[in-house]
């Protein structure tokens, strides 16, 4: 019990920014076309992932075929999940066809092998106090 309390306190301190915050680099591979932008969001909870709260960070970068690197500074240590979509036509959404199949690129941290939106747990990873780099593949 004592240790759980200590952990909670520590987590609270990190969140409040008392300690050094990490930079997260997310390498996005397999960008199929240089058209449009890649839109990435970083979430810190399943609720945020499911749209009930804001993402903790968002970024848009011009697409270039192959690899695009995102950098997020100042993230407190914790559990995060990243989603990215390739907005080829600039309409700010992931286009899908009449039957609901996505027709633009998308991806999640951990590259879960699912043909649907991944869950927060499937995409979640731990970020410590140090800088970290993760890779994911656009599908």
């Amino acid at each position: 019990m004592k240790s759980i309390l200590a952990c909670t306190l520590t987590a609270g301190m990190f969140a409040a920014g008392f300690v050094h915050a990490a930079e997260l680099v997310v390498k996005v591979n397999d960008v199929r076309t240089p058209k449009g932008q890649l839109l990435m969001a970083v979430f810190d909870s399943a609720e945020a992932w499911d749209g009930k709260f804001e993402a903790v960070a968002k970024q848009a970068l011009e697409a270039s075929a192959g690899e695009v690197d995102f950098r997020f500074a100042g993230l407190a240590p914790g559990r995060y999940a990243v989603s990215v979509m390739h907005d080829e036509n600039g309409n700010h959404k992931l286009d899908s066809n009449l039957i609901g199949m996505p027709v633009e690129g998308y991806g999640f941290s951990n590259d879960p092998q699912v043909m649907r939106k991944a869950t927060f747990e499937e995409a979640a990873f731990d970020l410590g106090a140090d800088n970290a780099t993760i890779e994911l593949h656009l599908r």
Binding site: P102, V103, G105, P112, V114, M115, R139
Partner: peptide
Amino acid sequence: GAEAIRNNDD
């Protein structure tokens, strides 16, 4: 070890 795919056309 199959990779993730975007949709059925992949």
